[in-house]
Amino acid sequence: MRLALAFCVVVGCGLCGNALSMSARRRVETLTGLIQGVRVLRVHMIRMLEPVSIALTASECPALEQLGRAMKPGDSAGRTWRVVAERETRPGGLMDVLTLEDRRALDTLFNQLGESGREQQDILIASTLEALGKNLSDAEKRAGEAERLYLSLGLLTGLMLALIVI
């Protein structure tokens, strides 16, 4: 009976540790979604020459789609982004796991999105994808480390508790 209880404690603590690394994984997922969205945005803007709001709405990324829908006729992407980012980076928002670095890359993108010619816009999007790509690699590395760290910590705590129980 005690052995069974000890086993449950170890597994439970391991799962808790795993859950603690969830935010790091969510950052990876959010950045992956944003990168994919910016790629689709690039096609709609640069190849199909759709206006920013329509291209954002068609980006297949929930955060960017929301930004596109929030843009009223005559509004700039930068101004709307500041409002949307303020709301969506709060706890519970679509982008609440983004770091300052991620936010900086997106601020640079949206402050200049649509405000120049096609070639400059293509360069802007390419540099944003590069910056987000770097952040994603970093996030993946950190997510892996966090996963291992919290899982190990959880299991160790579980083992300690199991010893006490036994």
């Binding site: 640069i46 206006p51 006729p73 005559g74 992407a77 405000e115």
Partner: peptide, 13 residues
């Protein structure tokens, strides 16, 4: 002018 272009200058180039 930027507002009339919907802040999408590249579409009007």
């Amino acid at each position: 002018l930027a507002s009339l272009m919907d802040h999408s200058f590249y579409t009007r180039e």
